[in-house]
Simulated scan of single mutants.
Amino acid sequence: MKIRVGQGYDVHRQGKGEELWLGGIKFEHTHGLIGHSDADVLIHAICDAILGAANMRDIGFHFADTDPQYKGIDSKILLKDVMELVRKEGWELGNIDCTIVAEKPKINPHIPAMKNCLADVMSVDEDDISIKATTSERMGFVGREEGMAVHAVALIQKA
């Protein structure tokens, strides 16, 4: 059996009054994330991890932030498209492991809903998705609440 591992990392700036989408779920919060799409930093890191594992470049290569068709797009659509791309090449997801780095809001209460949403979009079992959350102990751009970051690792295998 052939397996591969990919790593994804994404950051987005925070802005007052912006919507906050993480893992396909809308959070109620005073600050959201700024981006060309809906700025779902979790989904973007997952896409990069999966694409990287399949040696298919990154999310920006497939869905350029200069392309007007992706302006404001729901990142769940991008994730679904990524899964179709890698499946066409004969790959299937083994699992993903993600860490969201954010000071606020509290992420842990929303993890079950995010896992459920992502599993549905990706057509995988919730058990194949691990989401963790941490802060940066008030250090750096995350600590100053200027942005959020996500680290993701994906394991894929030939179907």
Rank of each mutant, 00 (worst) to 15 (best):
P112A: 07
K115W: 02
Q69L: 07
D58C: 13
I50R: 02
C47L: 04
C117H: 11
L78Y: 07
V11D: 03
P112R: 10
K16Q: 12
I50S: 00
A45C: 03
A133H: 06
T99I: 10
M114H: 07
A39I: 04
E28F: 11
H12I: 01
D40T: 12
K158A: 08
G52C: 00
V82C: 11
V124A: 05
C98G: 07
A152V: 02
C47T: 03
D67H: 08
D40P: 05
W91P: 06
P112E: 14
T99Q: 11
G147W: 03
A54W: 04
I3E: 05
A102I: 07
H44Q: 10
V86W: 08
A113M: 13
T30G: 12
D127G: 10
R144G: 08
Y9F: 07
G143V: 04
R57N: 10
A45Y: 00
V121C: 10
S136T: 07
Y9D: 00
I100V: 15
H31I: 05
M1W: 09
L51N: 13
E126R: 12
M56R: 15
F141Y: 07
I73D: 12
N108L: 13
I77N: 11
Y70N: 05
S123Q: 10
D120E: 15
Y70A: 05
T134W: 01
D74N: 15
I59H: 05
H110G: 01
D127M: 12
V150T: 13
M114Y: 02
I25D: 01
L51Y: 08
G24R: 02
G35W: 04
M139F: 08
L78R: 09
L22D: 01
R57A: 11
H36V: 11
I77Q: 13
D81A: 13
N55V: 12
C47P: 06
Q14R: 15
S123V: 08
F63W: 04
E19M: 09
R87Y: 09
H29S: 14
V121N: 03
I25T: 00
K106S: 14
L33R: 07
V150H: 01
M56N: 14
G147V: 02
R4I: 05
A49R: 03
I34S: 14
V11K: 09
T99L: 12
D65C: 08
S75K: 04
A119H: 01
A45V: 01
D74M: 11
G17N: 10
H110I: 04
K106M: 04
V124H: 04
W21F: 14
V41A: 03
L78M: 14
H151T: 08
I50E: 00
A149T: 09
